[in-house]
Computed example of a mutant assay.
Amino acid sequence: MASQSQLHGIELIDCAKANAKQGIETATELCGYGKNINAFQAELKKACQDIGVEIHELSDLITSQQTLRQEGGFDIAPESPTDL
């Protein structure tokens, strides 16, 4: 659900990270910036700088854990209920 107002700070970072895989246009809209990608990117970079994180583009927010969840991973389990 898109934000009714432009997000800032950690709320913007959280929203952008959650929607980064959907692309810059979608993340921009859902974070309350409509079609204004430039304003979204500038505010996101500022928010990240404020917490000491350097990003160059939206995809920098995608973590390896998010990638593994989407692509799938592997299960670690015993070979049988009685055999560890």
Results as ranks from 00 to 15, higher is better:
residue 34 G to H: 09
residue 25 E to P: 13
residue 73 G to S: 14
residue 54 E to F: 02
residue 58 L to M: 02
residue 1 M to A: 11
residue 18 A to P: 00
residue 10 I to M: 03
residue 10 I to P: 00
residue 80 S to R: 12
residue 46 K to Y: 13
residue 71 E to C: 12
residue 6 Q to V: 10
residue 8 H to V: 15
residue 27 A to R: 00
residue 34 G to A: 06
residue 25 E to T: 15
residue 66 Q to G: 06
residue 32 G to A: 10
residue 39 A to H: 03
residue 84 L to M: 08
residue 9 G to D: 12
residue 81 P to Q: 01
residue 15 C to S: 11
residue 55 I to R: 01
residue 5 S to A: 13
residue 26 T to P: 02
residue 53 V to R: 06
residue 38 N to E: 12
residue 29 E to N: 14
residue 21 K to C: 01
residue 76 I to W: 00
residue 20 A to N: 05
residue 72 G to P: 02
residue 39 A to S: 12
residue 1 M to I: 08
residue 43 E to L: 01
residue 21 K to V: 01
residue 79 E to R: 08
residue 14 D to M: 08
residue 22 Q to D: 13
residue 47 A to F: 03
residue 79 E to F: 08
residue 59 S to R: 08
residue 36 N to K: 03
residue 15 C to Y: 04
residue 20 A to C: 05
residue 4 Q to A: 13
residue 6 Q to K: 15
residue 84 L to V: 04
residue 26 T to E: 04
residue 48 C to A: 03
residue 82 T to D: 09
residue 13 I to W: 06
residue 42 A to K: 04
residue 79 E to T: 11
residue 13 I to E: 03
residue 53 V to L: 13
residue 76 I to K: 00
residue 75 D to F: 05
residue 11 E to P: 00
residue 62 I to E: 04
residue 66 Q to K: 04
residue 11 E to A: 13
residue 23 G to A: 10
residue 68 L to Y: 00
residue 69 R to A: 08
residue 77 A to K: 14
residue 44 L to M: 05
residue 48 C to H: 13
residue 23 G to I: 09
residue 13 I to N: 05
